[in-house]
Design a protein around this nucleic acid. Structure first.
Length: 605
RNA sequence: GCCCCGAUAGCUCAGUCGGUAGAGCGCAUCCAUGGUAAGGAUGAGGUCACGGGUUCAAAUCCCGUUUGGGGCUCCA
C-alpha cells in the first residue's frame, strides 16, 4: 500500500469518526456524504434545528479522540440493496435512503453528482446495483465503499477547521446541510507544517497586502464588490494594462472606445439577456422609455463598430482592443477582495477574421499570453474548455467541432501544456482558458481566448468576399490579464507585494541622513524622475519618492523596506561630497556616481 | 441568493457578571542632526458599523440593515 493511499484511508476513516462523534453528541443527526478532500475530509450533517459553530469543535474533537483511543476495528460487510434501504429507514437516515433508492433504480448515473468513494458500491459503473457495502466501527455503521484503516487508532492527527453551509447534492433547491471540515496528517509535525503553510498564505493575502501597501480601499458607502484604487494601486493597473496593450499593438490591434451603458436590446440580440439577465445592473432614463443596462461585457458593442459600415474581405482581420470596465451584479455572497468584484476591468480584444485567418490570429494571441506570463514569472497551463452534450450551447454543432479542432491543434503547435474539460465552454463557443501557477503552487484562471461563430450570426455581421458575396466573419475574444482586479489579487499574492522594478508603484525612494543634504537629495530625486525605462514597457517614467523626515536612517530604511520599494537610495554628506548615491537593493548594496545613475537604473531588472 | 462567524481610535487588537472604553503602532508638537530594519518626551483621536427592541442601565442581550470573512451554488 503506498503512502498516499494510506493517507486517503486515514482521512476517510476520520470522516466516519467525525460522523460517529456527532452522532454520539446529537443522536438525531442525519448524515449526507463524507468524502476525502485535499489535506483532509468533510462530512455533511443535518442536526435538525441545531447549528454547529466553531465553539463546538473542542467538544466534537474530544469525542473523536475518545473513539480513536478505543481503537475499534473497522468491519466491512455487504447488504442486498433492499436490506440496505430498510437499514436507512430504520435508522431514520433519509439522505442515505435517497441515495440507496437512486442506486437501486439506476446505478451510479443518477448519483454521479456525489463522490463515488462515498457510495457503497463494489464498482462504479452505470449498471443497477444489487448489493452495497457498509463499514462499522463500534456502534456506528455507515454506507461506504471504503477503504478504511484497520482500527480507529490508526488515523494520525487531525483538526476540525470550519463549518459551512452546503446544499444536499449541490442543488440550490435542496435543503442546506452543515458541512464540517477537518484536516488530517500522519504526524503532528506534518499537521503543524500544514497549519504554518496556511499562516504563510495569510501573510500574503492580497486583501491584507492591499491595505498595508495602500493599493486599494473599499467603502460601505460605495458598496460591496466595488473597490477603489489608490494612486499606488492605479500604477499597477495602468502599467499591467499598458503592457497588455503594447503586446496587442504589436499584433496589429487598434484601440476603440465604447460607452458604459446601453439599451438592453443589445443583449437581447446577443443572447446574454436570456442567459444572464438577472446579473445586469439596470439603468433608467428619465427622458425616454428605453431600458438601459450597465454593460456586462464588451463584445456586442465592438460588434456594432464592425457593423458600422460595410466591410470587405480586404480589411480583415479587423482587430479591436480596449481596456474597460464591465459591471455584473454578482450575488453578494460571492464577492470577496479583488478576486470577485462587481466592477470588472478587462483588457478585452476582438478579432473579426476570415475562416482561413483563424489559426494565424489565435496563434498570435497564444504567443501574447506566453510572453506576458513569462515576463510575470508564472508557469502556464491551458485548459481547452469544450462543450458537452447538453443543450446549453448556441450555434451549429459542426462549427463547434471545427472550432474545437482548431484550438486543440494550436495548443499542440504552441507547445502548451494542455488538458481538455468538456462542459466548460462559453455558450457561444469553445475557449482556451489559461491557468497560471503562483509562488505557492496554486493555480488561477487568468487569460482566455474564445472562438465564437455564434455572435456574428446573431448580429448578422458580414463582409463581402472575393466573389462579391456576403460572408460571416469569425470572432475571437481574448483577454490576456482577464479581469485586472482578479489578476491583481493573484499577482499580489504571487509576488507577496514585491513587484518587479518596472511595475513597482514606488520604484525608488531617496532617504536623507540629515537636513544639510536636502538640496543634494532633491537633485538625486530629479535625476531619477527624469529617467525613463524602455523595457518591458516602451515608455515608463520612473516613480520616485523622497523621505526627508526628521527620523533616523534606520527608521527610514525600515519604512521603505516595509513599503516594498525595490531601490533605496541613501544620501548623506559623504555622498553629496563625492557626488554619488549609496544604493540599497534587496540583495546588495553599492555606490553609484550621480552621472551614472540613469544608466544604472535603466539596467536594473 | 443560502448557511456559519465577525464589525471597538487611521491600523492591529484587548474589554470578565450588562454599570456609557483601553494598549501598541500610526498621527501632531517639541527635543535629538543621525550612515544601513523602530531615538526620546508630550498630546490629540471613539455616537463601540447603522436602525430598532429588552432593561433603572447596552460596546456587552434580542431583531433588522449595511459591511468583512469562511463555505455552498453561480461565473459571459
Amino acid at each position: 500500500m503506498n503512502s498516499k493511499h494510506d493517507m486517503h484511508s486515514m482521512r476517510h476513516s476520520l470522516a466516519h469518526i467525525t460522523a460517529n462523534a456527532v452522532q454520539n453528541l446529537w443522536p438525531q443527526a442525519k448524515f449526507g456524504v463524507g468524502p476525502v478532500i485535499e489535506n483532509g475530509f468533510y462530512y455533511d450533517l443535518d442536526l435538525g434545528g441545531i447549528t454547529l459553530s466553531e465553539d463546538d469543535f473542542a467538544k466534537i474533537e474530544s469525542e473523536m479522540t475518545k473513539i480513536v483511543k478505543q481503537n475499534q476495528p473497522f468491519k466491512q460487510f455487504n447488504l442486498p440493496i433492499d436490506q440496505a434501504i430498510e437499514w436507512a429507514v430504520k435508522n431514520k437516515q433519509q439522505y442515505k435512503k435517497e441515495l440507496l433508492n437512486d442506486l437501486k433504480r439506476s446505478g451510479t448515473t443518477v448519483a454521479k453528482d456525489l463522490d463515488v468513494q462515498e457510495l457503497g458500491l463494489e464498482s462504479a459503473d452505470d449498471s443497477k446495483v444489487d448489493s452495497v457495502s457498509f463499514y462499522q466501527n463500534g456502534d456506528f455503521t455507515d454506507l461506504c465503499r471504503g477503504p478504511h484503516v484497520e482500527k480507529t487508532g490508526d488515523v494520525g492527527v487531525f483538526k476540525l477547521m470550519r463549518v459551512a453551509g452546503a446544499y444536499w447534492r449541490g442543488k440550490v433547491d435542496n435543503p442546506q446541510m452543515q458541512r464540517l471540515y477537518g484536516v488530517a496528517f500522519k504526524t503532528q509535525s506534518d499537521l503543524d507544517a500544514y497549519l504554518q503553510q496556511l499562516e504563510d498564505a495569510k501573510a500574503r493575502d492580497h486583501r491584507k497586502l492591499g491595505k498595508e501597501l495602500d493599493l486599494y480601499v473599499t467603502s460601505p458607502l460605495v458598496g460591496a464588490g466595488l473597490p477603489l484604487f489608490t494612486p499606488r494601486g492605479t500604477v499597477l493597473r495602468e502599467k499591467l494594462a499598458g503592457y497588455a496593450e503594447q503586446l496587442r499593438k504589436e499584433a496589429g490591434f487598434q484601440r476603440v472606445s465604447i460607452p458604459h451603458i446601453t439599451k438592453t436590446d443589445l443583449y437581447k440580440v446577443s443572447g446574454h439577456w436570456d442567459k444572464f439577465g438577472d446579473e445586469l445592473f439596470l439603468v433608467k432614463s428619465q427622458e425616454t422609455s428605453d431600458e438601459f443596462a450597465l454593460k456586462p461585457m464588451n463584445c456586442p458593442h465592438h460588434n456594432q463598430i464592425f457593423a458600422g459600415r460595410p466591410r470587405s474581405y480586404r480589411e480583415l482581420p479587423l482587430r479591436y482592443f480596449e481596456t474597460t470596465t464591465v459591471y455584473r451584479d454578482e450575488k453578494t455572497g460571492e464577492l470577496g477582495g479583488l478576486s470577485r468584484v462587481r466592477s470588472i476591468t478587462q483588457d478585452d480584444s476582438h478579432v473579426y477574421c476570415r475562416r482561413d485567418q483563424l489559426e494565424t490570429e489565435v496563434g498570435v494571441l497564444i504567443k501574447n499570453v506566453q510572453t506576458l506570463y513569462r515576463l510575470l514569472n508564472m508557469p502556464l497551463k491551458a485548459r481547452l474548455s469544450f462543450r458537452d452534450k447538453s443543450d446549453a450551447y448556441l450555434g451549429d454543432e459542426s462549427l463547434w467541432r471545427i472550432a474545437q479542432q482548431v484550438l486543440s491543434s494550436l495548443a499542440v503547435e504552441s507547445k502548451l501544456e494542455s488538458f481538455t474539460v468538456e462542459g466548460e465552454a462559453a455558450f457561444y463557443g469553445p475557449k482556451i482558458d489559461f491557468m497560471a501557477t503562483d509562488a505557492l503552487g496554486r493555480e488561477h484562471q487568468v487569460a482566455t481566448i474564445q472562438l465564437d461563430f455564434v455572435m456574428p450570426e446573431r448580429f448578422e455581421l458580414e463582409y463581402t468576399n472575393e466573389t462579391g458575396n456576403p460572408e460571416r466573419p469569425v470572432l475571437v475574444h481574448c483577454a490576456l490579464l482577464g479581469s485586472i482586479e482578479r489578476f491583481l489579487s493573484v499577482y499580489i499574492e504571487h509576488t507577496a507585494g514585491w513587484f518587479p522594478f518596472w511595475l513597482a508603484p514606488e520604484q525608488v525612494r531617496v532617504l536623507t541622513i540629515n537636513d544639510s543634504v536636502l538640496d543634494y537629495a532633491q537633485k538625486v530625486k530629479n535625476e531619477v524622475a527624469a529617467t525613463v525605462l524602455a523595457k518591458p514597457l516602451r515608455y515608463n517614467e520612473l516613480r520616485v519618492g523622497l523621505d526627508d523626515r526628521n527620523e533616523t536612517l534606520g527608521r527610514k530604511i525600515r519604512d521603505a523596506v516595509e513599503a516594498k520599494v525595490p531601490v533605496i537610495m541613501i544620501v548623506g554628506n559623504k555622498d553629496a561630497e563625492a557626488m554619488q548615491v549609496s544604493i540599497r537593493l534587496r540583495d546588495k548594496e553599492e555606490k553609484v556616481e550621480l552621472t551614472n545613475l540613469k544608466s544604472f537604473l535603466q539596467h536594473l531588472v
